[in-house]
């Protein structure tokens, strides 16, 4: 297998007037062809920052401190703006949390899909409409000819997200980054959208990076899950293994805090403490202040990755 996306020891900080926020530190992750990888974490874990960094879309205050992001053969951090623009939309696509605001409110959705095709697909202009309708049909929008002429406000949130997916998939990208694609949608709609994303990855051998706070959702749809905490990637493992044998104390507690059809209110575990302030001096393990397994060794830098198996990596001195 070849990695579609490789992130190696990636570090990124934000310079703010209240200090330097060390948003990501030594993050490593790879996504294979056709694989769905979930990046799971609570708010402030840096999962969205990572998604935007992969897209090459960075806040003006962001500074890359080190590491590499390789997309196919392209070094995303070294590539020029033109090279990035060529890749984005065609080979690398992203869908966002609020589909309604990500669509242009005063243009028909069909025309917005045509824009993408015109930019990237190299099609004769009389073919554009046909392809746009086909793109809407592919995301199972009922009556695509009629929806082609719809404005975003005429569509429900779920339909808007499908349009976003249609736009993202219009050029058959190699990698789809889905940043909380179903947050704010109903659970019934969420299931339909996630089924769609999964089927698209399977059918087109498209890699997907799913950014979510919902471990249950990631558990159902991903092949592998990477757990993030306070800018660190703390554990990466295949889904079944991560859910049944979490090795990082944080992963275990996150699992125990997530309600499932089998949990009880007494069994719900809350994670003590709060995220550390990323502007302060931080210990090598950013979870150490909240961790019940903390030992003296944990405070020795650098914090190494431990391999429990070829595919199960954990960044903890005393894994479970």
């Amino acid at each position: 297998m070849t990695a579609q996306l490789t992130i190696e020891d990636f570090s990124l900080v934000f310079r703010t007037r209240h200090g330097t926020v060390r948003a990501l530190e030594d993050v490593s992750l790879s996504v294979e062809r056709g694989e769905i990888v979930g990046v799971v974490g609570e708010s402030g874990s840096g999962k969205s920052v990572l998604a935007y960094a992969v897209m090459g879309l960075q806040d003006a205050a962001a500074r890359v401190q080190g590491g590499r992001i390789l997309f196919g053969g392209l070094d995303m951090l070294g590539a020029g703006e033109q090279a990035l623009a060529d890749v984005r939309g065609r080979e690398l696509a992203m869908i966002f949390q609020s589909p309604r605001t990500a669509l242009n409110p005063i243009r028909k959705v069909g025309a917005q899909i045509e824009d993408i095709l015109r930019e990237h697909a190299n099609l004769p202009s009389r073919e554009l409409r046909k392809h746009a309708i086909a793109a809407l049909a592919r995301v199972r929008i009922p009556d695509p000819e009629r929806r082609y002429n719809a404005y975003p406000f005429e569509l429900s949130g779920g339909m808007c997200q499908r349009v976003m997916i249609a736009m993202a998939l219009a050029c058959s990208p190699f990698l789809l980054i889905a940043d909380e694609p179903t947050t704010g949608l109903d659970v019934t709609t969420q299931a339909v959208i996630m089924d769609l994303i999964r089927d698209m990855s399977r059918d087109q051998r498209m890699s997907t990076l799913l950014i979510t706070h919902d471990l249950g959702l990631a558990g159902e749809y991903c092949d592998r899950i990477a757990v993030m905490h306070a800018g660190h990637m703390v554990e990466i493992a295949p889904v079944e293994e991560l859910l049944s044998r979490p090795a990082h104390p944080y992963t275990r507690q996150l699992l125990a805090a997530t309600p499932t059809p089998r949990s009880t209110v007494e069994g719900l575990v809350s994670i003590p403490g709060q995220l550390p302030d990323l502007r302060r001096d931080l210990p090598p393990c950013r979870f150490s202040a909240r961790c019940e397994r903390h030992v003296a060794l944990c405070d020795e830098a650098p914090l190494p990755w431990t391999s429990l198996s070829a595919t199960h990596l954990v960044r903890c001195r005393v894994p479970l």
Binding site: G158, M194, G216, E220
Partner: peptide, 23 residues
């Protein structure tokens, strides 16, 4: 039924479940 089938559940991964489409 559709609502319950839509709850993400890693234990029922890959199972075909009834989906509620349309608006």
């Amino acid at each position: 039924r559709a609502l319950i089938a839509s709850i993400p559940d890693p234990a029922r991964r890959g199972e075909a479940r009834p989906r509620l489409d349309g608006s």
